[in-house]
Amino acid sequence: MYNFEYHEPSSLADALSAIGSAEDGKLMAGGMTLIPTLKQRLAQPSDIVDLAKIAELKGIKREGNSVVIGAMTRHGEVATSDVVKSAIPALADLAGNIGDPQVRNRGTIGGSICNNDPAADYPSAVVALGATVITNKRRIAGEDFFTGMFETALEPGEVVTAVSFPAPEKAAYMKFRNPASRYAIVGVFVAKTSGGVRVAVTGAGACVFRQNEMEAALEKSFTPDAIKGIEVSADGLNADIHAGADYRAHLIGVMAKRAIAACG
């Protein structure tokens, strides 16, 4: 990897000033994507600003009917958190199936959603649960946060500090994993919330998206059979060495049915 200057600020204010004065700086959360990217020389930042020592970005707390998770909270902590397990077990389950135990001991929720990998797990939960992404500047509806492949609504100088997830009535996440990388070839997060049913799909397209036709059918009847007749179009879906677009389209239906069944 190319060399860089390393900064380890202990407050968000110091992190912002470090990134602001860097020529081409990059924020680092858990580093589970950034470090492999640097090792392959696919990026050459002048400065790395590590967020790991900033206490205000960490931790999980219950606020009314919501669970608020600090951006630097690691997947392993979300997976084993009693607060998350009791309020939103589907979210704990999702976090506990990201990558492998060692990746879960380093990777963070903030890093995952800001990177917005098309095959990442967390974006589906943020969209399906109607979560709010909290930054140092504003609150962004989960649905508006993910704008395209590896792209988000974040502006320069904006840092995600936490994600607030309202607890659903029922929810479940099912993914068809790549057997080597454990990324989702297709992942479907289904949530029955006070605001209606949401079905969010990751891995299949350029970016997480909602499956409106399934949502409408599930509003009428929240059962796997309700979406039986829905044909998912392969138009615009990802096709790569792991799976073709038609296969991914098929998997959306299969994973959605399994998720609905798992909601019980």
Partner: peptide, 18 residues
Amino acid sequence: VVHLDGKSIKSCTILAVQ
């Protein structure tokens, strides 16, 4: 794999400074 502060991690994907 090594342990950092009691937890297993992949030492090829963390900087020494971290």
